Computed example of a mutant assay.
Amino acid sequence: MSRYDWVPDQCAIVGIGTTAFTRESGVSVTALAAQAALKAIADAGLEPSDIDGLVRSDYDQTSQVALADALGIDDISYWGQTGPGGSGPSGMVGQAVAAITSGQATHVLVYRALNGRSGRRLGKGVSVTGGVGGESTYLELFSPYGVTSPGQFFAMLARRHMSEHGLTEQALAEIALVSRKRANANPAAQMYGRDLSRDDYFSARLISDPLRLFDFCLETDGAAAVVVTTTERARDLAQRPALIRSVAQGTGVRVGPGQMYPVLMGESLDHLPSRSTAQRLYERAGLTPGDVDVAQIYDCFTVTVYLQLADYGFCKPDEVSAYIEGGGLDLGGPIPINTAGGQLSEGYIHGMNHVVEGVRQIRGTSTSQVPGAEVSLVTSAPPPGSSALLLVAA
Rank of each mutant, 00 (worst) to 15 (best):
A173V: 09
S77I: 01
S127G: 14
A225F: 03
R182M: 15
M1D: 08
M191C: 14
W79H: 08
V253P: 00
G85N: 01
Q190S: 04
G328A: 05
E47I: 09
S102E: 05
E283W: 02
L309F: 05
G326K: 02
F153M: 12
A34V: 02
S163I: 15
Q249I: 13
L32F: 04
V132T: 13
F153N: 05
G116P: 07
G252I: 00
P273E: 04
I335V: 15
H350C: 08
A99Y: 04
T168E: 00
T277Q: 03
T379F: 04
T82K: 03
G222N: 10
I297P: 05
G131W: 10
C300F: 03
R245T: 05
R254D: 14
F202P: 12
G252V: 00
S102I: 03
R121D: 09
S276W: 00
S380C: 14
V253S: 02
R240F: 11
G351Q: 08
T277M: 13
P384F: 02
T82V: 07
S387G: 13
T220K: 06
L38N: 15
G119Q: 01
V253G: 00
L71S: 01
D293K: 01
L67T: 04
A40T: 06
G133S: 05
D58Q: 03
G17R: 09
A36L: 08
A66P: 00
T302L: 07
T339R: 14
C300I: 04
K39G: 05
L269M: 12
S387Q: 11
V178R: 04
G341W: 11
E169S: 11
P334Q: 13
A68M: 00
A173K: 07
V14A: 12
D270Y: 02
G364R: 11
A322T: 03
E283L: 10
G332Q: 02
H350F: 12
L243K: 09
L377G: 00
G151K: 14
D195N: 06
L54I: 15
A105Y: 10
P89M: 14
A388H: 07
Q81T: 13
Y78S: 08
G80T: 12
A322Q: 08
G85S: 06
D293M: 03
T106W: 01
A113V: 08
L32K: 02
G15A: 15
A285K: 06
S345Q: 11
R3W: 03
K316E: 15
A189D: 13
T229Q: 12
M260I: 13
K181H: 12
L344V: 10
S345N: 14
T229P: 14
A171G: 00
A173E: 10
G53H: 04
D5L: 10
M260G: 00
